[in-house]
Design a protein around this nucleic acid. Structure first.
Length: 492
RNA sequence: CGGGAUGUGGCGCAGUUGGUUAGCGCACCACGUUAGGGACGUGGGGGUCGUCUGUUCGAGUCAGAUCAUCCCGACCA
């Protein structure tokens, strides 16, 4: 059948690419590396947005919107920042088209060349700090805590659906503070928000940690990350929070008068998560039957499938199912009654499984007589027939159970694929098997680079809340002294 | 930008040493039978074979050019 997936174990990439399309999440667009997010996929993203947005607001953050275009001169003010992004920017050079004088179609009007080129934002630090300069005069203006939900463009050489696309949706928070301590605390607070969201909502066990200087955001003094493990053992950076120090304040000359009247540069953070979380969700939980969505994120939590032969049978079954639907909805559960008569039940079962709906209820004439329903759960692919009375209460708790079980499954998988490694020879073969290796590192960029060149493995993070191993040891590569283990992995 | 591959109805493919009307599966349309794990039967619609040039009596098939896409690298959330 057209809907069948390549098995995960056979070709992980192909399985992933097919799943994105077959679960109706997204498809490729006419422009290479860009993606159409379809309604079902977007509904999941919207759910992520609304939950995260509420969390941000609890920390005092407000939403705002800054322009898509950044004048080239703004962009080039912070040296490290430019160096980090210059190679992947879309640039607007003209503002008008004209009819091709030599024939059909249109060409760029050479008369309409812009005096200063505009960069399509790859991230908004520069434009935002050029604006913050006008907002900040006094210590009384601080802190400023803004977030924006928007799209950004990074012209990547190679793209993959959700994980790396030329254009993607994200949120970027940008805060300005009077002191370094306050800014660092904010960066920590936000990475905690991300970690809680990943664990509680996405059912994704993540490791929180610091990036090594090599892997740090361009222009940051410190980058905090949440790192997740995918089912092929590769690491995925799922969100980052940066302590930017005074780099951007100095580049954009943003100073405030403190309570003694002295001018001080402002301290900054920025933090973001993107539609890459969709990729993380897919790769962490899905199986050969398709998507597996944690109930807290599923746009449809329960699907009802009627089974019938005649119209009378359908009416009787639908009556019962509608009653169940109302009762579930009264509990705040989102329900879909699949009453299409154009496809058969078996087709519906397979289709909703592909789309990852956590719970399916099937009800037919047989059940009506016996007073039962069939309840199937997506995470375990098991089903049981139970009395129709009390089924809604059962499903309410079942959704919680499924949420926990999906997290547990991912947690156990990760636990089984994290191991310590103390020998360089062992490292070289072990790292290729996938998973995270906890190893001693001497703290130098040279060692990290050498390891990357030889094995493609990078330091995913220096963990702060999971697998923390502060202990004396020797660097796995250089043999120099080390004060703790860090997480090495091959990453997306 | 380096290495590899592929372009044939919406999708996935076949198409022999060049040979006449370009074929198959899925999807689609109609009718009927079906319906508790991706239904079946019968009938039907839809493609000039990525593009250009060449070789030839004759090109989906051979040659050259060109464009596009995909995979592996470099780069990256």
């Amino acid at each position: 059948m057209a809907k069948e997936l390549t098995p995960r174990s056979e070709n992980y990439s192909q399985w992933y690419n097919e799943l994105v399309v077959k679960a109706d999440l997204a498809e490729q667009s006419a422009v290479r590396g860009c993606m159409v997010i379809k309604p079902y996929g977007y509904a999941i993203w919207e759910k992520m947005q609304s939950i995260l947005d509420a969390e941000f607001k609890k920390t005092g953050v407000q939403n705002a919107y800054f322009p898509l275009f950044i004048p080239k001169s703004f962009f080039s003010r912070e040296a490290e920042h430019v160096a980090g992004f210059a190679k992947e920017c879309a640039v607007v050079t003209h503002h008008r088209l004209m009819n091709d004088p030599d024939g059909k179609g249109v060409v760029v009007d050479p008369e309409a060349k812009l005096e200063e080129e505009l960069i399509v934002r790859p991230t908004s630090e520069t434009i935002i700090w050029s604006v913050y300069k006008n907002w900040i005069k006094s210590w009384r203006d601080l802190p400023i805590l803004c977030n924006q939900w928007c799209n950004v463009v990074r012209w990547e050489m190679r793209t993959r659906p959700f994980l790396r696309t030329a254009e993607f949706l994200w949120q970027e928070g940008h805060t300005a503070h009077a002191t370094a301590q306050e800014a660092e605390a904010k960066a920590n607070e936000m990475v905690k928000v991300y970690a809680d969201f990943a664990r509680n909502t996405l059912a994704l066990p993540v490791i929180v940690g610091h990036k090594s200087p090599n892997e740090r955001f361009a222009g940051a003094l410190d980058t905090l990350t949440i790192e997740a493990m995918m089912q092929d053992g590769k690491a995925l950076q799922a969100g980052t929070s940066h302590f930017l120090g005074q780099n951007f304040a100095k580049s954009f000359d943003v100073q405030y008068a403190d309570n003694e009247g002295k001018l001080q540069y402002v301290w900054a953070t920025s933090w973001g998560v993107s539609t890459r979380l969709m990729g993380a969700l897919i790769m962490a939980h899905s199986d050969d039957n398709g998507l597996v969505l944690p109930p807290k994120l599923a746009p449809i939590q329960v699907v009802l499938v009627p089974i019938y032969k005649t119209e009378e049978e359908f009416n009787a079954v639908a009556l019962k199912l509608n009653a169940i639907k109302s009762e579930l909805e009264a509990k705040g559960i989102s329900v879909k009654l699949d009453d299409r008569d154009t496809v058969r039940p078996g087709f519906k079962f397979a289709e909703w499984e592909m789309k990852g709906v956590p719970v399916r209820i099937a009800l037919g004439a047989r059940d009506l007589e016996a007073g039962t329903v069939e309840v199937a759960r997506r995470d375990t692919l098991t089903k049981e027939t139970m009395p129709i009375d009390g089924v809604c209460d059962h499903i309410e708790s079942l959704l919680g159970e499924i949420q926990d079980n999906i997290y547990k499954k991912a947690f156990d998988f990760r636990a089984a694929n994290i191991r310590k490694c103390d020998s360089w020879e062992e490292f070289k073969t072990e790292i290729q098997k996938g998973g995270f290796l906890l190893c001693h590192w001497d703290g130098t960029a040279e060692t990290e680079q050498a390891i990357k060149d030889e094995t493609k493995a990078t330091i995913r993070c220096i963990p702060v809340d999971t697998c923390v191993c502060e202990e004396e040891g020797k660097d796995i590569y250089s043999g120099k002294p080390s004060h703790g283990r860090v997480v090495f992995a091959i990453s997306y």
